[in-house]
């Protein structure tokens, strides 16, 4: 494992497409932590997050040929895979069942969520205004469409769109 190595993105993608084990290993070393944090932001359970993380890297490995560099950075592509896989996991029947069981047995259920607030994207989102934080929670972490959010909150879709965009601009200012 050559942890000290630095690859630029073109080379990284090229070598991943050439099925390089060492470069895939490098990819894991460099990005597993960041992706796992975002996965934890969504699934909140360590065990499940590790399972999702494994699935995410399998997807990255198998779908690297479909990654289009002209449409964004490699990390952005991987981040979206991680988010989608996490939301899929949360919505799956097995997750819903385990969550119910957990709620029955674990009276102090908030601990995990408290802790995952301090990592990943939630750490950045926590700096947003309350009304914006709610929209990002629903749209990003729970994967609701703007239409669904408008219905759930009983506000016009135009308002949802405008506020969400305002939230993202504020997030951008936090990020940079």
């Amino acid at each position: 494992m050559e942890l000290s190595k630095k690859y630029d993105e073109d080379e990284l993608v090229l070598r991943l497409r050439n099925r390089s084990r060492s470069v895939f290993s490098y990819l894991y070393e460099h990005y597993a932590g960041a992706l796992r944090a975002v996965i934890l932001n969504i699934v909140t359970d360590e065990e499940l997050a590790n399972d999702v993380l494994q699935e995410v890297f399998v997807k990255i490995w198998r779908q690297i040929d479909s990654y289009d560099q002209s449409r964004g950075r490699l990390f952005t592509w991987m981040l979206n895979i991680a988010r989608n896989a996490s939301i899929d996991m949360v919505r799956s029947r097995s997750f819903q069942n385990s969550r119910k069981n957990q709620e029955l047995t674990d009276q102090a259920g908030g601990i995990n969520e408290m802790r995952t607030d301090q990592i990943g994207l939630r750490k950045l989102v926590s700096g947003l205004r309350e009304e914006y934080r709610m929209l990002v929670e629903l749209a990003y972490f729970q994967g609701y469409t703007q239409d669904e959010i408008a219905k759930a909150l009983s506000i016009p879709i135009g308002t949802v769109k405008t506020r969400l965009r305002a939230a993202l601009i504020q997030l951008r200012d936090i990020v940079r």
Partner: peptide
Amino acid sequence: EKQLQNAGSPA
């Protein structure tokens, strides 16, 4: 990417 790298969790 930079912020999320910094806010990562050990795998």
